[in-house]
């Protein structure tokens, strides 16, 4: 069964309900797993869909959209399980765009494009709600990443829709902000990465990272540095610097890698038989991961969120 992925653009609650309610109701009546993830509209929907209470799972956006790669993997696992038994996951999603910083916004917009690749063939029905009062760049990206527009029970082809590979290629082709001049720069010569891990750990601890979060960062940096050493072209370097609420680690080499599609840069969860987890696992273990490739080298920038409480406390 094909995926349906539509944007629901609304001005007010009535317009939202006109499309959201029949979408959720249809799924509940079919007995499919139905998720309604909204920014504060749970009670509104519950009132309208009282007859289907128990058949619909309501979640607040802030509790659901915590991590791009992880939520994609979770929903995909559910969608594939349902598809295997003839069912179809139905998700009404609404991001909390106003609470996102530019990097997070870009990451979640990439997810919107990736949904068209990752969920293809699962038969999932995904309806993404966009308040027309959102910033224009958010609405523009929504128009580029949804193959259908929804109004009521009607689905119309979206003429602005862009092939997700093109969208990602454009997004991932944008130059990264330059690293700060005072960032730590370390050459990576040896495949023995123990010293590198020790250095990253020192910086990370200085910025409040420890325990499992630090370990996840070390595993992610090790994976990316190993890739650069094995497949890239020297010199390989590691840069580290702090940003508000984040620690950034960037591994660069001077190779000319040109990945053929989003799967190669870790955007698509590996199939069950695939042993190499690679950049997908790096994305799972980190915050936003930016990959830039081309004839002038490869850069993988790993952003690790530092929990606010820790970041705010004196070190």
């Amino acid at each position: 069964m094909p995926l349906t992925h539509a944007a629901l653009s609304y001005e007010d609650h009535d317009a939202f309900l006109e499309t959201a309610v029949p979408f959720l109701r249809e799924g509940a009546e079919r007995g499919d797993p139905v998720l309604a993830v909204t920014a504060g509209k749970t009670e509104l929907l519950r009132r309208e869909l009282a007859a289907y209470d128990g058949a619909i799972t309501y979640v607040d956006s802030a509790d659901f959209y915590l991590h791009p790669a992880r939520i994609v993997a979770r929903v995909l696992a559910l969608a594939e399980r349902e598809a295997a038994t003839g069912g179809a996951v139905r998700l009404l999603g609404e991001q909390c765009w106003r609470e996102r910083d530019p990097l997070e916004t870009q990451e979640w917009q990439r997810v919107e494009a990736l949904v068209n690749v990752v969920f293809a063939g699962t038969g999932a029905h995904i309806l993404c709600a966009y308040d027309l009062g959102l910033p224009p760049d958010v609405l523009r990206a929504a128009a580029l990443t949804h193959p259908q527009m929804a109004q009521g029970a009607t689905r119309m082809p979206n003429p602005a829709y862009q092939d997700p590979r093109d969208y990602l290629s454009t997004t991932d082709g944008r130059p990264l902000d330059p690293a700060p001049a005072d960032s730590a720069l370390v050459p990576v010569h040896s495949p023995d990465l123990r010293d590198l891990r020790a250095l990253v750990a020192v910086h990370a601890r200085r910025h409040g990272l420890g325990g499992p979060l630090l370990h996840q960062l070390l595993v992610a940096v090790t994976e990316v540095a190993t890739n650069a050493l094995h497949h890239g072209t020297p010199p390989v370097t590691l840069r580290l610097w702090p940003e508000p609420d984040r620690l950034v680690c960037e591994v660069a080499d001077e190779g000319d890698w040109s990945p053929p599609g989003p799967a190669e840069t870790g955007n698509v969860p590996p199939r069950a038989h695939e042993i190499r987890l690679g950049l997908w696992a790096v994305r799972m273990l980190s915050g936003p991961v930016q990959v830039r490739t081309g004839p002038h080298g490869t850069r993988v920038r790993i952003h690790t969120p530092v929990p606010r409480a820790i970041a705010a406390s004196p070190t």
Partner: peptide, 9 residues
């Protein structure tokens, strides 16, 4: 104290 993704592989 450390297991890389490669080691899990």
């Amino acid at each position: 104290t450390f297991v890389s993704l490669d080691a899990f592989g």
